[in-house]
Design a protein around this nucleic acid. Structure first.
Length: 571
RNA sequence: GCGUUCGUGGUGUAGGGGUAGCACAAGAGGUUUCCAACCUCUUAGCCCGGGUUCAAAUCCCGGCGAGCGCACCA
């Protein structure tokens, strides 16, 4: 960093101006929990809306909303309960903390599955600390990174967790989504909201939080027919850091299309979402030069993913993962199907032309089987229908479902070849998931927008926020707080605020220069000033934040431009 | 979780066993024909708990929080 104090100055400003603040501060605060103040919350709302608009403009993506409290069974199926309950142990000599199963890996083929007592036994048999070579371990304790809670009271309560990701909500709703989209893939669902991870030690301000704003898109596809977005228009040269263990290791710079062609990005749908993620980030004001995509090595992949790209953004805390784009394949839907025994977590794949399937079967002859087996006849018929491999010769021994065996004679069955028309098949869709951490993205928006400068020998700072991301669209300033100017300014302010999604704020205290500075500091892009001329003809001056240039315009005109985000055309 | 530095108005800081100062910001008023001007007035602070002491913001212990290093980060 050019200036190590910049981070402190930025954080102070965020606190002073009500953007980001420590939560519960009057009680001492809680590490990993933050508040968005009046200015920050408006920004969060706008980034969220921007994100929703961005994905829903695709036309095949809808929004859903699920509970944050999630019953245990859901997270057992998804693998989170198992993955989160790592047994941890501490070296009594040097206080280093380790995952217990990793320490005993060499002593047991499946250490991950061991209980605490067995692990303790193995640890006691002479496992030494990798840091200090001592062998003195505390009892292994489960470290659960999910917040546990209980649904219902006392002993009748069911174990539940605060969701560690919003994604499971989309999987729960797959049957409904499939119906909504009239049984046609591909389609997607998004959800924004809070996620919870009980981090051991949250650090770096709002980079690692215990409760955070996430936004996830689950895009359901047919793995045999992956949708290919049009990335030919994306000419940007981007930075890629492919899998260090793969054939393309090292850093490379190329377009999204070239990366897909070169096989660096392995999946066409993933490539499309990488490009669209880029569009979103740049659109909300992230500096394109400080974005890069990093492919996970197979060793660091999440338990549910088979291929994963991080989108990292560079800021005061270095390169930080802000978006994860994972190919989750059929992991979640398949596991939910197994654990819940629910049907409806699959999709139908229609064959281009119906396939003729020749089926050989032994057709039962009821006239013989009935009298011969009497009460067991039905079971025999069922067993014959269930045969997948036909015997080469008759008679043969047929196993019934209850384990008994009967002899089938040639007169009991007739060998037949039947032709069936099969028009399609059921399969479990694959899922491509871009998962966004909004808090981290907002941090980097602020970081990249925070500009420290000088004006007439004094420090002068401002946020160069993208239009539509600033907490408000403009300030309305009466040049003097008298002589009819405040009244006209109030009227203009009311008019602007009456337009849905446009926000203005009145500021009439202290000198005009001070008020411009206040607005600049929180990144308000426009200032409308009411002066004496305004009282005569209704025009105002429009000041542009980024170069402080002013033009005169009429209120109706300004309003129209604010709506269309086209005020720049006046300059 | 371990080690380490630290915690004073909204923000930034000074002080360091005996009356807590300053700057900026904010509010009220005045002045001012467009970029943190000026004048008057005002609001507002020693992170929390315990101990030592006649007396604790100050010293000691614990907690909470922040930064950094180690560990952790599905």
């Amino acid at each position: 960093m050019a200036d190590e104090r910049r981070l402190e100055r930025l954080t102070s400003m965020l606190k002073r101006r009500g953007i980001i603040l420590p939560a519960f501060e009057i009680y001492g605060g809680v590490s990993g929990l933050i508040d968005y103040g009046p200015v920050g919350a408006a920004m969060l709302r706008r980034v969220t809306q921007n994100w929703l608009d961005h994905w829903m403009s695709h036309g095949d993506i809808v929004e859903i909303d699920s509970p944050t409290i999630t019953p245990e069974a859901v997270l057992v199926a998804s693998g989170h309960v198992g993955e989160f309950s790592d047994l941890m142990t501490e070296c009594k000599a040097c206080s280093s903390v380790f995952r217990a199963d990793h320490l005993v890996e060499d002593e047991h083929p499946n250490a991950d599955s061991l209980g605490a007592q067995k692990i303790d036994g193995l640890l006691g048999s002479g496992i030494t600390c990798p840091s200090c070579q001592e062998s003195a371990w505390t009892a292994a304790q489960p470290m659960n990174l999910m917040f546990q809670t209980s649904i219902g009271a006392m002993s009748s309560g069911r174990t539940a967790y605060m969701r560690p990701e919003t994604a499971q909500g989309m999987f729960m709703l797959f049957p409904s989504l499939y119906r909504h989209f009239r049984q046609r893939l591909p389609f997607g669902a998004v959800q924004t909201g809070h996620g919870y991870r009980n981090e051991i030690s949250p650090r770096q301000g709002m980079i690692r939080l215990r409760e955070f704003n996430m936004a996830e898109l689950e895009y359901f596809i047919d793995p045999q027919d992956p949708p290919v977005g049009n990335i030919s228009k994306h000419n940007e040269i981007i930075t890629l850091i492919p899998d260090p263990d793969g054939p393309h290791s090292g850093e490379s710079r190329m377009s999204f299309g070239a990366a897909l062609e070169a096989g660096i990005v392995r999946h066409p749908t993933v490539a499309w979402f990488l490009a669209r993620t880029w569009d979103f980030l740049v659109g909300v004001g992230i500096d394109p030069a400080r974005i890069r995509f990093r492919q996970h090595a197979s060793t660091e992949m999440a338990h549910y993913a088979t291929d994963c790209w991080d989108c990292e953004i560079h800021g005061e805390h270095g390169w930080v993962e802000c978006v994860g784009i994972a190919n989750r394949t059929c992991h979640d839907l398949e596991n939910h199907e197994t654990h819940s025994k629910a049907r409806g977590l699959r999709a139908w794949r229609q064959f281009a032309t119906p396939r003729k399937q020749v089926v050989e079967r032994l057709a039962p002859n009821g006239a013989v089987i009935g009298p011969t087996f009497r009460n067991d006849a039905a079971a025999v018929v069922a067993a014959l229908e269930a045969l997948t491999e036909l015997p080469d010769s008759l008679p043969f021994d047929l196993s019934l479902e209850d384990g008994r065996s009967v002899t089938i004679n040639p007169d009991m069955v007739e060998r037949r070849e039947e032709t069936a028309n099969v028009s399609g098949e059921w399969f479990t869709p694959h899922v491509i998931e871009p998962a966004f951490g909004f808090d981290r993205i907002i941090w980097h928006i602020l970081d990249h927008a925070y500009t420290e400068g000088e004006k007439e020998g004094e420090d002068y700072n401002h946020l160069s926020l993208a239009a539509g991301i600033s907490s408000i669209d403009c300030v309305v300033l009466p040049l003097f707080d008298k002589g009819g100017m405040p009244e006209l300014a109030t009227e203009i302010n009311t008019t602007i605020n009456a337009v849905p999604r446009l926000r203005a704020q009145l500021d009439s205290s202290r000198s005009i220069g001070r008020r411009y500075a206040r607005a600049d500091e929180i990144g308000v892009p426009w200032a409308l000033t009411v002066d004496h001329t305004s009282l005569e003809d209704g025009s105002v001056t429009v000041r542009r934040r980024d170069d402080q240039v002013q033009v005169r315009a009429f209120v109706d005109e300004v309003l129209e431009h604010l709506r269309n985000n086209s005020l720049d055309s006046l300059f």
